[in-house]
């Protein structure tokens, strides 16, 4: 009969122990530096190489480019850049292949929205999402 008494002792001991829960969402939850949150996109760095769209396993990135407004310069600049966060799995592959680090991860992770439409993030939104940007990509 001793077995369950020991168990009762264990739970009683836990009664006064320090609580391990965090105060999220009152206090923001600090993610480690490598955390893969929502992407930040800086249009000026993008060279429209399309690698991110190609490597994406769920094909959630759609982008279009146009030729450089300055006719002397070669290459393209980005025109539209959309990520569909309904299907994005935050796998990190797009930031891994990006040669210019135009697309990088941030530590922000709160994506809840009332409408699915809000989950389509466009270039401007991704550009403005520039807090807690990840250092190494």
């Amino acid at each position: 009969m001793l077995g369950f008494a020991k168990g009762l002792g264990y739970t009683l001991k836990k009664l006064s122990e320090k609580k391990i829960t965090t105060l999220y969402p009152d206090v923001p939850y600090q993610m480690p530096p490598r955390f893969r949150g929502i992407q930040h996109f800086s249009p000026e760095k993008c060279i429209v190489c399309n690698q991110c769209a190609r490597v994406c396993p769920t094909e959630c990135i759609q982008l279009t480019g146009r030729s450089h407004p300055d006719p002397d310069k070669k290459g393209k600049i980005i025109d539209t850049y959309d990520i569909n966060f309904e299907i994005c799995i935050l796998c990190d592959l797009c930031t891994e292949v990006c040669p210019t680090e135009a697309i990088v991860m941030t530590n922000n992770f709160e994506l809840a929205a009332y409408s699915r439409d809000e989950l389509y993030k466009d270039l401007k939104w991704l550009d403005d999402n520039n807090t807690n940007v990840r250092e190494e990509n």
């Binding site: 739970t11 836990k14 009664l15 006064s16 122990e17 609580k19 391990i20 829960t21």
Partner: peptide, 10 residues
């Protein structure tokens, strides 16, 4: 409350 405290939550 009591069960919460025993399970290390408030």
């Amino acid at each position: 409350k009591v069960i919460g405290w025993m399970q290390l939550r408030p």
